[in-house]
Computed example of a mutant assay.
Amino acid sequence: MSLVTIDARHSVLGRTNALAKLAATLVISVTLLLSIDPVSAGVSLVLTLLVLPFARLDPRQLWLRLWPIVIAALIAGAATVLYGRPSGEIYLEWGVLRISDGSIALAAAIVLRVLAIAVPSIVLFATTDPTDLADSLAQLAKLPARFVLGALAGLRLVGLLIDDWRELALARRARGIADTGRLRRFLGQTFALFVLAIRRGTKLATAMEARAFGAPIERTWARPSRLHARDAALVAVAVGIAAASVTAAVWAGTWTFVFAL
C-alpha cells in the first residue's frame, strides 16, 4: 500500500526525483541549524509555505502529519520562555521562572525553526513513494543496495504494524480483557506487537535471502532513476530559500551562529 496520495504523486513535487527532494530538504535544514534567530526561520517558513501548493497535499492529511510537531514546538517554546537564559527587560521573576525579552525571542526562534525544518521534511515524505526513494538512493547516491532494500522493506511494514495494533485491540476487547486497566492493557498490547514484529521481520528476512536480495553481485533495477531539469530547479529553489533566510537575518542583525553561543 502506497503512503502517498494520488494527487501528491501527480503533483509537480511528486514527479520530482526523490534524491532532489532529499537534497533540497537538507539544504534548508542545515542552513537553519547554523543559527538560532526568528528572522531566518520565519523567512524560510514563509517561503516554504509559498511552495507548498505545488505539492497538492490535502490540508487535513498535512495537519495530521504536522500537529505532533506543532505541539512539541509550542511546548519547547513555552519551556524556553519560562526557563530560558534571561536578558534584556525582565517581565516576571518567580524562583527559577524568569520571563524576559531574551527568553521570549529565543522561544520564538526555536518554535519557528522547528516548524521551518519540519514542513519541508513532511512534504518530502508525503510526496515521495518509498520505492522511488530507495531507487534514487541506490542508483544515484550509490548507497549499498542491501542497506537500501532492507530499509525499504522495514518502512513497508509500518502500515502492517498499524493494522496489527488495531487487530490486537479488537481481539483483546472481544475477549473481555481490554475493559479496565489502560496502562496494563497498553503495556501488554505493546509487548504482543513487539513479538509480532520480530516474527514478521524474521520471515521477511528469510524471504529476501531466498530471493537473493543479499547476494554479492551487482543488482539490476526494474525502474531506472534519473535526474531531470525540474530536479535541478527544485534544488535551486531550496538554495534560494536558504540564501534569502540568511540574508534577511544578517540584514536585520539577528543572525546568531550556533557555535558562537
Rank of each mutant, 00 (worst) to 15 (best):
G95L: 08
G95V: 07
G95W: 15
V96T: 14
L97H: 10
R98T: 15
I99N: 03
D101A: 11
L106H: 12
L106M: 12
A108N: 12
A109K: 02
A109L: 04
R113S: 06
R113P: 01
V114Q: 06
I117S: 12
I117E: 06
A118M: 03
V119E: 08
V119W: 09
S121R: 07
S121H: 08
I122D: 11
V123L: 12
V123W: 14
L124W: 14
A126P: 11
T128N: 06
L133P: 02
A134T: 01
S136T: 03
A138E: 00
Q139K: 03
Q139G: 03
L140M: 09
L140R: 13
A141V: 01
P144H: 00
A145H: 09
F147G: 00
V148K: 00
L149Q: 13
L152Y: 01
A153F: 07
A153S: 13
L155K: 06
L157G: 09
V158S: 05
V158F: 07
G159D: 03
L160D: 12
L161N: 04
L161A: 05
I162P: 02
D163P: 01
D163L: 10
D163F: 02
A169W: 11
L170M: 12
L170D: 15
R172D: 13
R172Q: 15
R172H: 15
R173V: 05
A174V: 07
I177A: 08
G181V: 08
R182A: 14
L183R: 15
R184K: 14
F186M: 11
F186V: 08
G188N: 14
G188S: 15
G188A: 14
Q189R: 13
Q189S: 13
Q189V: 07
T190D: 08
A192V: 01
L193V: 01
F194N: 00
F194H: 01
L196H: 03
A197K: 06
I198F: 14
R199L: 13
R200M: 06
T202M: 10
K203N: 15
A205S: 09
A205L: 06
T206R: 15
T206P: 00
M208T: 05
M208A: 10
A210G: 14
R211D: 10
A212W: 11
F213L: 04
A215M: 03
